[in-house]
Nucleic acid binder design. Structure first.
Lengths: 157, 157
DNA sequence: GATCAAAGGATGACTTGTCATCTACTCAAC
DNA sequence: GTTGAGTAGATGACAAGTCATCCTTTGATC
């Protein structure tokens, strides 16, 4: 049973503030590295690398939603911006008259192929170089526990 | 010495994807809970609770920057929006002619006093209830290690 | 084959966050 | 007391993310 109280204790506060700050800073660093070395944002990187996982076929919008776990509308807006920049293409799906296939353009493929190794180098230096294997596994466990817990919560989906 | 490679191994991938997804989802949940139960966003909550830490004096903008570790411009824009909504006030600083004091309005104080306990309840259910003390300390250590490491990196500040 | 709920996706309005740039003031050196 | 570098904060333009709403197609039921 968990002790309830109207404030966080020192241990909780340390972890929580550290987590929030770290996660915010890490995102900002990733964004800046990608912008300056590959000319794309972290959001664009996320979409492009999801598409790169299925190199030889386009993906449906809902597959991107499932892969990235973003809100549908967030994905769709991001795709619209990326279509404008020529990184991806929309095509009517052949299987489902309501559906849209999303495909990498040649430029999108070029960009992600260049960005991926640079980004992996970056997050290695940023993150993995100072995190022990034990911490890594604990973070994975913790993340999965929290994610699973989230599904039962109000304000979900 | 760390093994370099152009891709993440399974262990790294599991932790990294879990972390990114979890952190994104947690933010979204916090935002929704605050919006629906207290009528403010997470960004507004962050500013208001920083101000609430010094209940009896206004804070300077740079103090908010130091406390929250946000970019200066992010803080300033957020403050402008919150002034518009009547949650905080700007006053010329008496000590420094360039400076601005930021103070809670009566409404801002009312809102944060109502929001704080609700939010703490929420993150307890969301997060602390499924995270062990050991994991908590590990997360704090990990966050501090990564934050410290970030300071030496390019793309900092 | 008409009806209708649900699925797949798009759009608009609005908030949030970033970068680049700008103004006003301070403080030190001369 | 000028000059000039650095500090404190503000602004504008744009990219991201959220919510509410909309349109079309599908698929089940009658």
């Amino acid at each position: 049973m968990v002790t309830k109280s109207d404030r966080l204790n020192d241990r909780e506060l340390r972890a929580w503030r550290g987590f929030l700050t770290m996660q915010d800073d890490v995102r900002r660093h990733m964004n800046r590295q990608l912008t300056s070395e590959a000319g794309i944002s972290l959001a664009e990187f996320s979409i492009l690398s999801a598409l790169r996982l299925q190199p030889d076929r386009p993906m449906r919008v809902f597959e991107l939603v499932d892969t990235l776990k973003w809100e549908k509308s967030r994905i769709i807006h991001q795709l619209s911006r990326m279509v404008r920049r020529g990184l991806v293409e929309r095509r009517a799906s052949e299987e489902d008259g309501r559906g849209t296939d999303i495909a990498l353009t040649a430029e999108g493929r070029g960009v992600i192929d260049k960005a991926l190794p640079l980004h992996i180098d970056h997050i290695r230096r940023l993150f993995f170089d100072v995190v022990t294997p034990r911490q890594l596994d604990m973070l994975a466990d913790l993340s999965e526990a929290v994610l699973e817990n989230l599904e039962g919560e109000p304000f979900d989906q």
